[in-house]
Design a protein around this nucleic acid. Structure first.
Lengths: 337, 337
DNA sequence: CTGAAAGCGCTTACAG
DNA sequence: CTGAAAGCGCTTACAG
């Protein structure tokens, strides 16, 4: 492997200065057309490849947006990342994706790496373990724009894009009630997650408005968002003296798990039990019964987050207005309710 | 946002040289313990954060592995990425994830960016559009180790980790035959993808061995790996005079789509039609009927790819033996066959 | 064990 | 429009 070609090599061949080469390569306006052509041609001939590290180091711009999500393994996140990329690539930005694996320590490490790699901005969705937000606070202090996506926090000087959880949960709970359900349970993730708590509120509000009692033992928290866990939650609920006749799941993946276990227990859906999800999982449409869900526009949410961070990068710190975008999910009624 | 602290600032405060600070920070052996402690303490006090760009530029190591996959939105890939991360993080490497979106142009662009960002190695899974492999060839020439994962190509001086497609397809087709199926169809992606072609071979071989005829019109190619497309493929098959009684799907996602459409068409599974998948999708276990599949150990495949690239990075070009790892998938028999 | 100095490969005012 | 020069923030032989 030969030593890589640098602008110095090109400059020498062409008998011009490296400044000229640099300007030609970046399409600077202050350069003669012929010189530019000559440089470009020579660069191609010599198989030149710019060193982005050097370029970012001196220009103090990386044209990279860092994204950190709990996992890329779920539709909501992979799809919002596609939305982010869609906007970013159009503007000539690259997107670096990292997953925290729901680990606080890893999240801190990633954010630190991202900041130290001088990315131009960071879009973050917190891990479920994250209670302390000092790491992003610091990054913001260091002048790097941050946008919080979906899993946000309070009192941060950063824009956020998230779902209208309370309203969404209210709407879908109301739907279950309108289907004649009286004993509606709620299977969710850790209530320490803001989203889980907010949806709980909406759920409670809908019950209250309909004059239905709120039963604390109808709220089952699961540790992880996995099929199995929803199944266990259902088994627990099904052991109770008054079995639920409707279940609101925090995420589609939990609804799928619930339905699967319901099958095994011989529970008829939706006759005996209505099951509703929340999310934006394509899969929920293709299993049977197809799942009623509050669809979150994850792609568009990603796009919005990208737009905001691009704006903030453009302003480079000055007067940057913090935006809070609460996105309404949309109810999609299918066979499971 | 204040100007970031550099090693120069620390050096001045401590009245030592920047070389000393640098050595202390990186835990070099040739430094006095007290000096090191003093530097570390001061760094903390001044809230110092290293500039990774500068560090990589001068050390010519980035401690970053670039990964490019067609999409992160499918279980096989997101899970193999988790495997890659699992190994990489242990060795102090970060993983930068990029998706090509099955676009050749984007893939080329990403590979170029990765190389220009001087990542230490690249793990790549080709897009379905990729027929020309010059971009990775170039990267290898530039001295950057590349490992191909799952979607590989021939005649490349790079290690590869992929599935034993032919054998896997043979095994599962044989299983369908043993279930008494005589008219087995194959729904796959573009046959230009090596994997699709190799599984076709295994499928054909199993038919042949059982004395069953191969019908070309039983092979349906779909454009994208999406639920809908499998449904359309099934409809096409179901229009034929001799309807299939078994279907092998190239991917679990296609099997899910097939089963969904079968429901709509009133086809009983597995009585009328056996459906088998191929992949490693958790979901296939949780829909009903649960899907029989050839499970690929995606996580372990990612781990292996990471191990290989780490080795090659360690050898830094010299005498690097090219490895070809063909991983056997495992048949998991469930309700759909 | 520590420092002075060169270098990594670019960018960007400043002159001309 | 072009060049000389300083600088981005580190690392690393080379001396001592």
């Amino acid at each position: 492997m030969a030593k890589p070609i640098t602008i110095k090599d090109i400059a020498e061949k062409l008998n011009v200065s490296i400044a000229t080469v640099s300007r030609a390569l970046r399409g600077s306006s202050e350069i003669k057309k012929e010189t530019k052509m000559a440089v470009l041609e020579m660069a191609k001939e010599m198989d030149y490849h710019p060193n982005l590290l050097a370029s970012s180091l001196s220009s103090k711009k990386s044209k990279i947006i860092g994204v950190v999500v709990p996992t890329i393994n779920r539709y909501f996140w992979s799809n919002s990342i596609s939305g982010i990329e869609n906007i970013a690539y159009k503007e000539g930005y690259k997107v670096m994706i990292f997953q925290s694996g729901e680990s606080f320590n890893k999240e801190v490490e990633i954010v630190e790496t991202l900041a130290n790699s001088r990315v131009d901005g960071i879009i973050i969705s917190f891990s479920k373990e994250t209670k302390d937000f000092n790491h992003v606070h610091q990054v913001i202090e260091r002048g790097i724009p941050v946008v919080m996506l979906e899993r946000t926090c309070k009192n941060m000087k950063a824009s956020k894009v998230s779902t209208d959880d309370k309203n969404g949960a209210y709407t879908i709970t109301k739907h279950l009630i309108e289907q004649g359900r009286k004993n509606i349970a709620y299977i969710c993730g850790p209530l320490s997650l803001g989203g889980c708590k907010d949806r709980l509120k909406g759920y409670q509000e809908a019950l209250k408005k309909a004059g239905l009692p709120f039963r604390k033992d109808y709220v089952v928290e699961v540790e992880d968002f996995r099929f199995e866990q929803a199944g266990q939650a259902l088994e627990k609920l099904w052991d109770m003296t008054v079995k639920p006749d409707g279940i609101l799941c925090f995420a589609d993946i939990l609804a799928i798990g619930t339905i699967h276990t319901a099958h095994n227990l011989g529970i008829k859906i939706p006759e005996q039990l209505s099951v509703a999800g929340f999310g934006d999982d394509e899969t929920s449409r293709f299993i049977s019964p197809a799942i009623t869900t509050m669809a979150q526009p994850s792609f568009e949410m990603g796009e919005l987050a990208a737009q905001i961070i691009l704006e903030e990068i453009g302003l480079s710190g000055e007067s940057c207005q913090i935006r809070t975008e609460i996105i309404k999910p949309e109810i999609i009624i299918r066979e499971s309710t």
